[in-house]
Simulated scan of single mutants.
Amino acid sequence: MHWSSLSALALVAPSHALIRFGCSQLVVDRLDPLVNPGLIPTPHLHQIIGGNSFNISMLPANHDPPKLSTCTTCQPSDDFSNYWTASLYFRSNNGTFKRVPQKANSGFEGQNGGMTVYYMQNQLADYTQKAKVKAFQPGFRMLIGNPAINTRAEAEKFPQLTYTCLQTMGTRFPETKAFPTKPCPAGIMVNLRFPTCWDGVNLDSPDHISHMSYPASGTFESQGPCPATHPVRMPQLMYEVIFETKDFNNKADWPTDGTQPFVWSFGDGTGYGSHGDYVFGWKDDSLQKIMDDACYVNCTSMKTQSIAAMNACSIANKVDEDIGDSTWISELPGAPKMTLHAADGSV
């Protein structure tokens, strides 16, 4: 179902909130305050959006995003959270690399790269959104996925991390677990859906995952029940990151060894290591108020800012290096070990 249809449905019945909004790029840098707090540079490059208090460590004891941030790249003006994923690269047939830029999703034209973020109570196409959820709390953080995995079996542990090969900007199916193996005319969309059941106690865990869980049975979309160990139902947080591949779709430029040409900044050419990070930073109880509101996408309870204001928010890079934006580079930043994915789907 396309967004035009979803928006029309939203007019016929009240609902609890589902919000969808754009966030411009804050910075592209080799920092990861969740997995590698205090380390500079970190092993691989990330693209980050959200509040401008993002920094090297962001330890919970001394990091309060709404108080420390002076701007946010996200459309909701009360959202100073930080959201990030790895960066994507194109590997040419001569072995050099160039970073694949991000582009705005439909409805957010003019936005500077970044991604689209969703918070929802039920599946995306359910405009009634009747389920009650508890919003994330100050100090909450989590990640999903694992950059160290490179097989389909390992990737199945994270069932809601997928790719969509966009034929047009309206394409949403099919979704694949590995990188697309053919050129994608409108880009590659990376879909990251986070677990939705919280243990109700811990705002984080050593692996940044264990305090969250998938439903005990069924899925979030089927409103599967949360397990007894993680009884608190929370919104599904979802990222859509669209990588603009138009300059890299000429098959003559693809590697001649049969491998597909896209590789994550941590060296994964399979696509199975996709992962995303989240540090909560909504002001006061603004997210809970939105989640409790009877609205769908266009929520008057969500204070918003202009795309120009989103684009104006940024921070300077902490790591001074060539990341392959304007020039081809001989190796990925940090020179991670490479795992390549053949065009037939084998590793």
Results as ranks from 00 to 15, higher is better:
A13M: 10
P261G: 07
T270E: 02
P180K: 09
L124S: 05
G51R: 02
H208M: 14
T304N: 09
L59K: 10
F21E: 01
R30P: 01
V347K: 09
T162G: 08
N105R: 04
V100A: 12
L192K: 09
A316M: 03
C197Y: 12
F262Q: 01
N311L: 11
G145T: 02
P66K: 00
T339E: 10
N52Y: 00
I323S: 00
N202P: 00
N55Q: 02
A178G: 08
R193C: 01
G51N: 00
G281T: 00
L9G: 13
C71D: 05
D293K: 15
M142G: 07
I48W: 08
F173G: 11
H44C: 04
D277M: 01
R172S: 11
D257T: 05
A342P: 06
N311K: 08
V241C: 01
F262S: 00
W198T: 06
N36E: 14
I242G: 01
D320Q: 15
M302E: 11
L88D: 01
I188Y: 04
D320T: 15
C23I: 06
M310E: 13
T229E: 09
Q223D: 14
A316I: 00
L6R: 07
S69E: 03
V201P: 03
T128I: 10
L192Q: 11
K132I: 15
L9Q: 09
F140D: 10
T168Y: 09
T339S: 11
S4H: 12
R91V: 02
P66D: 05
G218R: 07
M189T: 02
D285G: 13
N62I: 13
F220A: 08
D126F: 00
A308R: 05
R172I: 12
P66V: 01
P37V: 05
A312L: 09
Q102Y: 09
M115T: 04
G110N: 06
F90P: 01
K283Y: 09
A308S: 12
V347I: 14
H63W: 14
C197R: 08
